[in-house]
Amino acid sequence: MTDLLVLHTLRCMGFTDLDRVADAAGLSAPEAESRLIDLAVAGLVTRTPGAFGGWGLTEAGKAEDARLIAEQRETAGATAAVTGAYERFMVLNPELLDLCSAWHMRTVDGVTTVNDHVDAGYDARVLDRFTDLDRRAGPVCADLEAALPRFGRYRGRLTAALAQASSGRLEFLADTTTSYHAVWFQLHEDLLVTLGIPR
């Protein structure tokens, strides 16, 4: 039987390395690798070697993931709940992207430049707004988890990223592959795949 946990985690991450898949799926690296190899044997995932290499889905893997995820959604009777949560997510999404832009770029005196992170007050205000947005995202995540328990992992990963940022590691807002933005974007991708909406 297809290992949907690893297949779908990788589907929403896109293309990434073993450690990150394992972390996102909540598995040890050897366990995740073993499952990825089984999926590769089935022709659903592939590993690209080289400096920018990593694991990704094949076209067959994407099709199989879409089929299994739709089946899971229908079996759980979760279509209405996920659709409602998706609509609320899409209200929050532009604000999250605004905040990522505010984190990277800053406009002062009409000049937009790269945020040099010299102004701690500005960075703190951006972090505050991430925290406020996260609070408002909480009920959306809870409803998704109630509808389909696999969505519960996002809440934990978002909380972990925000906790890192709040403790001073501000690169966890939007600058790393485990940042708040990266996890948020995977949740967005998951919602699209789950509802069968093309990007």
Binding site: T48, T177, F185
Partner: peptide, 28 residues
């Protein structure tokens, strides 16, 4: 771009997209 393109974004020296604005995934 989307997470499916992350390896390409990492490998590229520069990025051009035809749609999406300054807050799009590619821009961020």
């Amino acid at each position: 771009t989307s997470p499916l393109d992350m390896h390409g974004l990492a490998a590229a020296a520069g990025i051009v997209t035809t749609v999406g604005g300054p807050t799009s995934h590619a821009a961020v």
